[in-house]
Nucleic acid binder design. Structure first.
Lengths: 280, 280
DNA sequence: GCACGACTGTATTGAATGTTCCAAAACACG
DNA sequence: CGTGTTTTGGAACATTCAATACAGTCGTGC
């Protein structure tokens, strides 16, 4: 039974001063976990005895009892990821997946340099530059989603894929100043690296999304983003990649707020009218 | 300057007993934050004074100084999500993205009933059932990735997409007992819902991945998974969906360990030999 | 082999802090 | 307006716990 539950149960029986204590405890449990009776009382603008009476009314053995309960609730949230993974039985796929994927999102986004991110968003939001999205087979899904969403926000977004001939045809259209978003992992597919090199020679600037700083993509890229892809399955996780792609879209959307919203409205109404099978 | 940094700096000057304390402090800071000198000493299998001397050697004003430092480090990690979001400036896209996407992964995977998950994995790992993956336009990327990875683990995985004619042709092939994984969000595309209904009538069992329990997909599905898709951008986030898809793949992989690994090896060597452009 | 120094733990002390008691204030009701 | 009840906070009290003094032990160098 959580502290919050106990507060809810006893909420009708609480007096004015006790209620003020409850508010403080709920608003920021850290004060109870780390602080003293006096500190809680000060924050609640009441006195020590009221804090103790509050704890007793919830059924705890004084303030120390309440404090222990709050501490153990917070402690579980603080368990280091590594330890939690060890605690999980090897059959608990879901539990280990939570830890792994949360870590993927965290480290992928937290390790990003704000300036590099801003630079990439600036390029993607620049309507004078065409955007080309280029993804290896394994990351193709994320590439499609990124292209789809960017395309909804601005003109001139294209995805490069298909037969070598189709790829070559697309590459020929790249103009100086264009932006190429290249996504590729682990096994760097030849054609991705070759295409990016060709794009650079055509004067494009490259945003590389990859899994290692030393990837061949990173060498030619203007902006490099390293994704953490730890996984419980035999394949790389693209949860971090997806989170990064979303962040790009969010950045571009906020940059192009006015025009993008108008575009989205148009698309929205089109959706509402015709709900037909999508073309591939 | 973090506690960890101080430990590293002073690590050469630490005595045996102090080092044992350091190990405990680093392995689980919660003991210091919530506990007492005696508790830390017990865990480190040493005595109180050694703990106090350790704190002093790091430059803190006794154990209370160390404790305060550890507490404030943990406190920042514990800041309630709502508060952290408020703390972020509205321009800090990355910061808000971390909070939002981590929450998406957490709630999506944590809210899953273990039995329902096991049931779905059992179906997906059953080689007597063909698997059909069916995704709306917005979630198409995740659908492709799921199909691609499942296909690497087992036979009989197909993706349904394309023109109404192609979809109809695929639907005709569905046999009783087959599994249909349907992904769709918010705007339920007519053709997805219709296709799923048709599949059910053909005797297929359905795994629905959607954003609300009340979705039309959920009504006909045998296993329903609700994804949290909060986003900083104007579009739904599919980070949670992707995490869920990964979890499925991981579940199937561990279920088919023996045969799946052999398949993967074959694919692996094929990759190494021929790195040619992928077909769309 | 002995003396010195560094290290470590036990016992003690004193400060910080939770708890309880009680008187005053606020409130409700006749 | 007055009386009984509830609520509240100040102050005394009890307890926990960090800090320190000190003695024992181990290792080291002469």
């Amino acid at each position: 039974m959580s502290v919050l539950d106990r507060v809810r149960d006893s909420s009708t029986k609480l007096t004015g001063a006790e209620r003020k204590v409850a508010d403080v405890v709920i608003a920021d449990p850290r004060v109870v976990a780390f602080g003293t009776v006096a500190e809680v009382a000060a924050l609640a603008q009441t006195s020590g005895p009221s804090v103790v009476r509050f704890a007793a009314k919830l059924g705890f053995d004084g303030f120390v009892g309440l404090q222990a309960a709050v501490q153990s609730e917070l402690a579980s949230r603080l368990a280091p990821a590594a330890e939690r993974i060890r605690e999980r039985s090897s059959s608990d796929v879901l539990g280990r997946a939570i830890d792994a994927e949360v870590a993927n999102v965290r480290t992928t986004l937290a390790d990003i340099d704000r300036d590099v991110f801003q630079g990439a968003v600036d390029h993607l939001a620049d309507r004078h530059r065409a955007v080309w999205v280029l993804a290896g087979e394994m990351s193709d899904g994320v590439g499609r989603m990124l292209a789809l969403q960017l395309d909804a926000l601005r003109d001139g977004v294209r995805r490069i894929s298909g037969t070598p001939l189709a790829v070559a045809r697309n590459l020929a259209e790249i103009k100086p100043g264009d932006v190429v978003v290249a996504i590729d992992f682990r096994r760097y597919e030849q054609w991705v690296v070759e295409s990016v090199t060709a794009a650079v020679q055509a004067g494009a600037s490259v945003i590389a999304i990859t899994d290692r700083v030393l990837s061949p993509l990173a060498e030619v890229a203007d902006h490099t983003f390293v994704v953490t892809a730890a996984s419980v399955s035999p394949f790389d996780s693209h949860v971090g990649t997806m989170a990064l792609a979303n962040a790009f879209v969010a950045g571009v959307a906020s940059r192009l707020r006015r025009t993008a919203m108008a575009r989205l409205d148009v698309i929205e109404t089109a959706w509402a009218n015709a709900l037909t099978p999508s073309e591939d």
